[in-house]
Simulated scan of single mutants.
Amino acid sequence: MNKRNHQYRITVTHLESAKESAPIQPELQIDIENHDDIFAVIEKIQQKQLFDDPQQATEFGLGLKLFSEVLLKNRKHPLFDEFYPAFGDFMKKLKSQ
């Protein structure tokens, strides 16, 4: 991992299945790096009050930073050909609100 980036450990614990017969999945834990302070990003999104539910601001901020870091590292991947320019526009719009 690059020491110039923030280092995080993310743990996902499956608490309940949508179907009673479905098994609870084992815990997932990954170590990641991100060029941004994820906690600061989440705080900014919460302050903007974009969503009625404050928890959704946290979910959005975390998901956005996880996704955008992968996107940046793989911006030349054919999967992102059409999406990458639109994502830039989206980020400008988000930051302007």
Results as ranks from 00 to 15, higher is better:
2 N>K: 13
3 K>R: 12
4 R>C: 07
4 R>H: 09
5 N>L: 04
5 N>G: 01
10 I>W: 03
12 V>L: 15
13 T>N: 15
14 H>C: 09
15 L>I: 10
16 E>W: 02
19 K>L: 08
19 K>M: 06
19 K>V: 01
20 E>N: 09
21 S>V: 02
21 S>C: 05
24 I>D: 01
25 Q>Y: 10
25 Q>I: 08
28 L>S: 15
30 I>C: 10
31 D>R: 12
33 E>C: 10
34 N>Y: 05
37 D>G: 09
37 D>K: 08
37 D>Q: 07
38 I>L: 06
39 F>N: 04
40 A>W: 03
41 V>E: 10
42 I>D: 02
42 I>H: 03
45 I>Y: 00
49 Q>P: 01
49 Q>E: 14
51 F>D: 02
53 D>I: 04
54 P>K: 08
54 P>Y: 03
54 P>I: 03
55 Q>T: 13
56 Q>C: 14
56 Q>T: 14
57 A>L: 06
57 A>C: 11
57 A>V: 02
58 T>C: 09
60 F>G: 00
61 G>T: 08
61 G>W: 07
63 G>M: 09
66 L>W: 02
67 F>G: 13
68 S>L: 05
70 V>G: 04
70 V>A: 07
71 L>Y: 00
71 L>S: 01
72 L>Y: 04
73 K>I: 02
74 N>G: 07
75 R>L: 02
75 R>W: 03
78 P>H: 06
79 L>P: 03
79 L>Q: 13
79 L>T: 11
82 E>S: 14
82 E>L: 11
82 E>Y: 06
82 E>H: 11
82 E>K: 15
84 Y>L: 00
87 F>Q: 10
88 G>K: 15
88 G>Y: 10
89 D>N: 13
90 F>I: 00
90 F>H: 01
90 F>P: 00
92 K>M: 06
93 K>G: 05
94 L>Q: 06
94 L>D: 08
96 S>F: 03
96 S>K: 15
97 Q>W: 10
